[in-house]
Amino acid sequence: MVTTIPQTPNTPIQSVLIVGNYCHDVLLQGGAVVAETLGGAASFISNVLTGLSVSFHLTSKVGVDFKYPVNHDPIVVPTSKTTVFHAYFDQGYSENAHQDRVLKRVEVCDPINPSDLPDRKFDFGMAVGVGGEILPETLERMVEICDAVFVDIQALIRSFHENGTVKLVRLKESGFYHLLPRLKFLKASSDEALFMEVEEVRQWCCVVVTHGKDGCEVYWKDGEMKIAPFGANQIDPTGAGDSFLGGFVGGLVHGLVVPDAALVGNFFGSLTVAHIGLPKFDLRLLQRIKEEVQTRKVQGTCWLERRDDEVSFTKPAGHDEFHASLSSSKLVSAECRRDLPRSPGSVEQVIRPQYKGQQKFLLNSVYDKSN
């Protein structure tokens, strides 16, 4: 089943298709369960787009054991279980000398087939699988029905050991490489970018590499740029990369040029790491952000209609001021957070009492992590 956000006078007319399964996420540290939350890139992205009043359809599959109330009903597979990931945060240090998590897929739901997608056209498509649910033929169908397709590379290069631990394969060996010229944007974390040749891929589609606390870099055929980060009080890195992609696409839907939209992506990534699991955004903060975005948007011109890369990728006048305004919005929100209601569409999650409010995952970790 696919649902959509009801149209309101403030809802953009551009439509977005999100494709990726909901998951059950279990966060563990020191052998104990810290939290059990709704997971999957689709949940984090839809949370951001809802906050930005962006209309979208969501195609996701779950099993009969799916236990979270959501605003966008998934396809329930009666013969399957919901995909489950266990994230272990006490497995030592990675090669980059920062504490990292070990991610294991312990249950897997059915993949999303081309026939599961809606039979209609979309302005934007987002392929955001986390458990191997995006098939090459499904991505090809998305290219056919969406004017611009955005892909998180984890949907293409994730593979799994026999014990369920996530491993990455090179993009050229993923079975998706031939589709790159038909994509608009490919997003990767700095670790994931090591599994592709950025200089080669940027000749076919725009590449966005996220660097966690250091912001992101945007590469296109004829240039590249760095986009500044936002300060973050990191508690849990889960979903930060997904929220970045949601903010990035949300900014483009609202008419921002690429550099400004990437700032919105960095902003939502920084908000997400301050929460355990799926974040609950302050409603007043969301309203301030939407007002800032409306002020910045290119009047009367949809991003999809601007074919000149030099215009779309050039930092416009006032870019630094836009960054400062977003930063200011976060500071103002923090001062009055106690009185704020939760964001629409947020779901309940189980957080063990002994961990509430404690920065258990902060220790030098990079916050650019997806599901």
Rank of each mutant, 00 (worst) to 15 (best):
19 V>I: 03
258 V>E: 02
270 S>R: 12
205 C>L: 00
269 G>S: 14
318 G>H: 02
77 V>W: 09
283 L>Q: 15
110 D>P: 03
11 T>L: 10
349 Q>C: 14
348 E>D: 09
281 F>Q: 09
298 V>N: 10
107 E>W: 11
26 V>I: 15
33 V>L: 07
135 L>N: 07
131 G>P: 08
111 P>C: 05
38 L>P: 02
196 M>C: 09
279 P>M: 05
299 Q>D: 14
271 L>S: 05
332 V>S: 06
256 L>F: 10
94 S>N: 11
32 A>G: 04
81 K>Y: 11
349 Q>R: 15
279 P>R: 05
96 N>T: 12
272 T>R: 04
117 L>Y: 08
115 S>L: 11
169 V>L: 12
371 N>R: 02
365 S>H: 14
38 L>C: 08
301 T>V: 15
288 R>K: 15
334 A>F: 06
321 E>C: 08
248 F>A: 01
360 K>W: 11
180 L>S: 05
243 S>Y: 05
351 I>N: 06
295 T>F: 11
105 R>Q: 14
310 E>D: 10
95 E>K: 15
57 H>E: 10
93 Y>G: 03
254 H>E: 02
15 S>F: 07
280 K>C: 14
142 M>I: 01
315 K>G: 09
13 I>T: 13
205 C>K: 01
108 V>G: 12
100 D>Q: 10
161 H>Y: 07
